[in-house]
């Protein structure tokens, strides 16, 4: 038998740095970034230059006009109050949707019979385009904060509910047997295994469910409101104020991106064990 020993032991990182694949990947990353910036500059440039030349500025506005409008709307406080109204509805709706979704998910996950009884009704509710329920919510709750929160909660409910259910159902039956023998009560199993498992699925699905909060808030505000980003979008459109409309869309997009970034950040903290 021969024992082989490495005559030139080197650190793994040293070997990595020398590999041309690293430099190649870095160059590609740089190229992608440059092209992304170029894409923005060219399309905004074409828009600015073509507006009033190739197509009517009345319908498409122009980037410079949008920036100006955005500035005025921010300066006079309209945008800030709209953003805070929308964020308020989105947060409240997200919180209540999460509580309901997790609550029902845990209940149904732990009680297969209840789950079977409620299944067709939940499928029905899921199949119904939820926007169709806005008029009903307006009748019941008026056009204020509550209605918008209720609608947002309904949108957030389903993805959270599904994640919770998957989290409960992914718990291995063997594991429950193992902990029963350790002396676990039913409550121990729920508190130590089922709920944490559901939470881990909800956290993992946060990037899918969180955007529904913003969608719900904006859609509800478009239907009936005198505040919020959704309201500004409808108002600008009805007044043919395309610059104001685009300015609001820009802010809504930013808000969406910010929401996604914070969800990613929060998710990374909550799921540090993954």
């Amino acid at each position: 038998m021969t024992i082989v020993t490495d005559p030139h032991p080197i650190g793994a990182d040293q070997a990595l740095d020398a590999d041309p694949a690293i430099a190649l990947r870095r160059r590609e990353n740089r190229l992608v970034l440059i092209l992304q910036i170029l894409f923005a500059v060219v399309s905004l440039g074409l828009w600015e230059w073509g507006s009033g030349r190739w197509f009517s500025g009345f319908w498409v506005s122009s980037p410079s006009e949008i920036v100006t409008t955005l500035w005025t709307m921010t300066a006079d406080g309209r945008m800030v109050s709209a953003v805070s109204a929308t964020v308020g509805v989105a947060l409240a709706g997200f919180a209540s949707g999460t509580v309901l979704g997790m609550g029902l998910g845990i209940l149904l996950g732990l009680n297969p019979v209840v789950a079977r009884v409620l299944d067709p009704y939940l499928v029905g509710l899921y199949s119904l385009p939820r926007v169709a329920l806005v008029p009903l919510f307006v009748l019941w709750l008026g056009i204020g904060f509550e209605m918008k929160v209720a609608f947002t909660a309904l949108l957030v409910f389903f993805p959270i509910f599904m994640n919770t259910l998957s989290g409960i159902r992914s718990v291995d039956a063997d594991l429950i047997d193992v902990i029963k023998v350790m002396g676990a009560s039913r409550w121990n199993a729920v508190a130590k295994v089922f709920v944490p498992s559901a939470l881990s699925w909800v956290f993992a699905g946060l990037r899918i469910s969180a955007p529904f909060a913003l969608i719900g808030a904006v859609v509800a505000e478009m239907f009936s409101s005198n505040r919020g980003l959704g309201y500004l979008i409808s108002l600008s459109a009805s007044q043919f104020d395309t610059a104001g409309l685009f300015a609001t869309l820009v802010v809504t997009t930013m808000l969406g991106l910010l929401l996604d970034a914070s969800v990613v950040l929060i998710g990374r903290r909550l799921l540090h064990w993954q």
């Binding site: 291995d172 047997d177 023998v181 881990s200």
Partner: peptide
Amino acid sequence: ANTQVAYVTQKDNLLP
């Protein structure tokens, strides 16, 4: 459940 025993299954079933 007999709590004087421990059950070791094929899957490790650790809580992730």
